[in-house]
């Protein structure tokens, strides 16, 4: 893989996003850089307010332009996202990059049938007759394993169950064979038995289509299920990046470690869960230095002076922390690893 060094599908460099209002300026993303190779699944893990969704939406330029300041560089395929005209961006949306949302009920148009919505997207981006587009819609519904797809083609979003709606949403997102799929917590609202079906299907489709996928989630279990690479975000920065096994089994950043130990997962019943104390910083007034330092049990004085540089914790595994060694020492040995 290293020898061929193919060009990454997505390259984001020093992305900064802030939202400006009369009351305050919220720095949601503060210098995020990452790459996604073609056919790779990157999971961005983070809690609410970490900037994971904002980062992903920036790739589609979905933020209200008048109140958002975006800086940095974003490239997807051959498109320089921030340099595109609004018109060119509309061609990119749906065709090159498409997105699956958490709540398909709000993302699908309630007054059109599922078939109409897929066919319309196909016609808009690829042209062709309505009939051919409908045939394609049927094919797509088959692909995402919607039972009795002929009937569902004529169904309105509210007539479908949550799981079927999300499948329809995915079919819509895949309708123009995008090279990059953005997924914003697409399974969070689903029941566990349905969630696993959708995750397995997404993984299979991703391999079939050879798409790059950026998958945003707060659930470490979901990341373990679907990711190749994982980026952990905190207060608008990626604080750890690496392969899914490295990050989840051998975390190098105290926040990742804290997330892992506070995820309820077979702990003994009488012991307290090792929770991270405190809550995330105020994005309107970020402290200098590492934003996690006030909550960190490994923190040393230099942590609050300047944001720690990114340090390698292994091959293709990096963390922004001065205390990687100490964190490594505290990682519980995995019985199954």
């Amino acid at each position: 893989m290293g020898a061929m060094a193919p060009r990454p599908l997505v390259e984001v460099r020093d992305l900064q996003v802030s939202f400006v209002s009369r009351e305050a300026t919220v720095s949601a993303v503060n210098g995020v850089s990452f790459t996604v190779m073609p056919g790779e699944v990157l999971c961005i893990i983070g809690e609410s307010g970490s900037g994971k969704t904002v980062t992903m939406r920036s790739l589609l330029r979905l933020h209200p332009p008048r109140r958002t300041v975006i800086r940095g560089h974003m490239r997807v395929g051959d498109h320089d996202i921030l340099a595109l005209s609004e018109r060119a961006m509309n061609q990119v949306r749906g065709a090159v990059i498409s997105m699956v949302f958490q709540e398909p009920m709000t993302a699908l148009d309630p007054v059109y049938t599922i078939g109409d919505q897929i066919a319309e997207t196909v016609i808009r981006h690829e042209g062709g007759s309505r009939r051919a587009a409908m045939a394609r819609a049927l094919e797509l519904l088959n692909l995402v394993k919607v039972p009795s797809p002929e009937r569902r083609l004529r169904a309105y979003p509210h007539e479908l169950s949550g799981g079927l709606r999300q499948r329809a949403m995915i079919a819509l997102a895949l309708s123009c064979r995008p090279s990059l799929l953005l997924a914003d917590e697409p399974t969070t609202a689903l029941d566990a038995t349905v969630q696993i079906q959708v995750l397995i299907m997404l993984r299979r489709l991703q391999e079939e289509f050879g798409m790059g996928v950026i998958f945003v989630t707060h659930d470490l279990g979901v990341a373990a299920q679907i990711a190749d690479k994982v980026a952990v975000m905190y207060a608008g920065r990626i604080i750890e990046y690496g392969s899914v096994a490295d990050v989840l089994l051998r975390p190098a950043h105290p926040y990742t470690l804290g997330l892992l130990s506070s995820t309820v997962h077979g702990q003994t019943r009488d012991a307290e869960i090792e929770a991270i104390p405190g809550s995330p910083p105020d994005l309107r007034a970020l402290p200098p230095g590492c934003s996690f330092a006030p909550r960190c049990r490994f923190a040393v004085p230099p942590c609050t002076a300047a944001f720690p540089p990114t340090a390698l914790a292994g091959l293709d595994h990096a963390a922004s922390c001065l205390q990687i060694e100490a964190v490594r020492g505290a990682v519980p040995a995995h019985a199954d690893a």
């Binding site: 039972p147 169950s161 949550g162 799981g163 079927l164 029941d191 566990a192 038995t193 349905v194 969630q195 696993i196 079906q197 397995i200 659930d219 470490l220 279990g221 979901v222 373990a224 299920q225 990711a227 899914v244 096994a245 989840l248 089994l249 892992l260 995820t263 997962h265 995995h334 199954d336 690893a337």
Partner: peptide, 19 residues
């Protein structure tokens, strides 16, 4: 259907189908 925090424990076939 419980997900584990270990990529080695991935589930390949859904335990239940349908909604």
């Amino acid at each position: 259907c419980r997900l584990v925090v270990d990529p080695a424990g991935r589930i390949d076939t859904p335990p239940l189908v349908g909604d």
